[in-house]
């Protein structure tokens, strides 16, 4: 009896100690993670300028859906940036991953480490270097293009919508492709040698092996990559903030940057906490919706993998 008692006591002690070990973070979860979410969901229904908050029902939502072209423009830009860069990034990462895992490359590590470098130097420095590279007056990129004659006069890269979006995408690809290389490499090395060998014994040629074995086995990896790229792409705004800050005239704004501007009164936009929260809610649902649609569409990929 005494033994079970002390056992129970020891168990209780462990329990208390465990709670203490995660206590601060548990508190942090409620205070710094859950509370802001609830806050946003509450003030989405208020007209709130920082001092007085008045309940306004769905008025903010009506405004967002009917009168706020800038918001939808920024949503569109977000999609353009998130998906546009994938067109280059995914094949590039795939080819590099295949090359690195082909067993023909000796200094695999050197390449991997080198390709990862842009990720390590931080967004502030990277964006500064890119701003300089794509400068209009005597910018290095303009100089190269002028030199080889593709353009006849300097381009104001960050001064027009599409070129600015291109710069944003280039920077983002430059800094981020290596992650996808890593994902693909993990995927390729997960394709078991036995499968490939077995197929070869059965008389499959390299084309068949690639299409019937390697690619289907990479489907789940591709799915994960696309999924992450989508969800993360929707949340990107720091690089846009640093490169163009939405300029010219909000034409390169992305959704999260637009929200940020509404919250933090940048560029003369008056802070509208209530309305910004509404847009936050809508954006969350857009991201969730896109993700769900995507998951639905790629159900097949899962079954193969």
């Amino acid at each position: 009896m005494a033994k079970t008692g002390s056992l129970r006591q020891a168990k209780l002690k462990i329990e208390i100690q465990s709670y203490l070990m995660i206590g601060l973070q548990l508190l942090g979860f409620f205070v710094f993670s859950l509370y802001p979410i609830l806050w946003v969901f509450r003030y989405g229904f208020y007209d709130y300028d920082g001092v007085t908050a008045t309940w306004c029902g769905f008025e903010n939502f009506v405004r967002a859906f009917t009168r706020d072209a800038l918001y939808w423009k920024s949503v569109l830009n977000t999609f353009i940036i998130a998906y546009g860069k994938l067109i280059v990034e995914i094949p590039l990462a795939f080819l590099i991953a295949l090359a690195l895992t082909s067993g023909l490359v000796k200094f695999k590590r050197v390449f991997m480490v080198g390709y990862y470098l842009p990720k390590m130097t931080g967004i502030a420095v990277n964006c500064l270097i890119f701003t300089y590279m794509f400068a209009t007056v005597n910018g290095p990129i303009n100089n190269i293009l002028l030199d080889i004659g593709i353009i006849s006069e300097p381009i104001a890269w960050l001064g027009a919508k599409w070129t600015a979006l291109a710069v944003i995408m280039i920077r983002s690809t430059w800094a981020g492709f290596s992650t996808n290389v890593l994902y693909f490499m993990a995927g390729v090395s997960n394709v078991s040698e036995d499968c490939v060998e077995a197929a070869k014994v059965d008389g499959a040629n390299s084309k068949q092996v690639f299409f019937k074995i390697t690619l289907p086995m990479l489907a789940p990896v591709l799915k994960t990559i696309l999924m992450l790229a989508m969800v993360n792409g929707m949340k990107v705004y720091q690089d846009v903030m640093l490169l163009t800050n939405g300029a010219p005239g909000g034409s390169t704004n992305v959704v999260m940057l637009y929200l940020y501007q509404l919250y933090f009164e940048t560029d003369g936009i008056k802070a509208q906490y209530g309305y910004a929260s509404t847009l936050g809610i809508i954006t969350t649902f857009i991201i969730g919706g896109v993700t769900l649609i995507y998951l639905r569409l790629t159900k097949n990929a899962d079954e193969v993998g």
Binding site: V40, M256, L259, Y263, F264
Partner: peptide, 14 residues
């Protein structure tokens, strides 16, 4: 579950 930049402001108020 994150709200991106919308959670910055309430966190900042906290």
């Amino acid at each position: 579950v994150t709200l991106g930049s919308s959670s910055l402001y309430p966190t900042m108020q906290l």
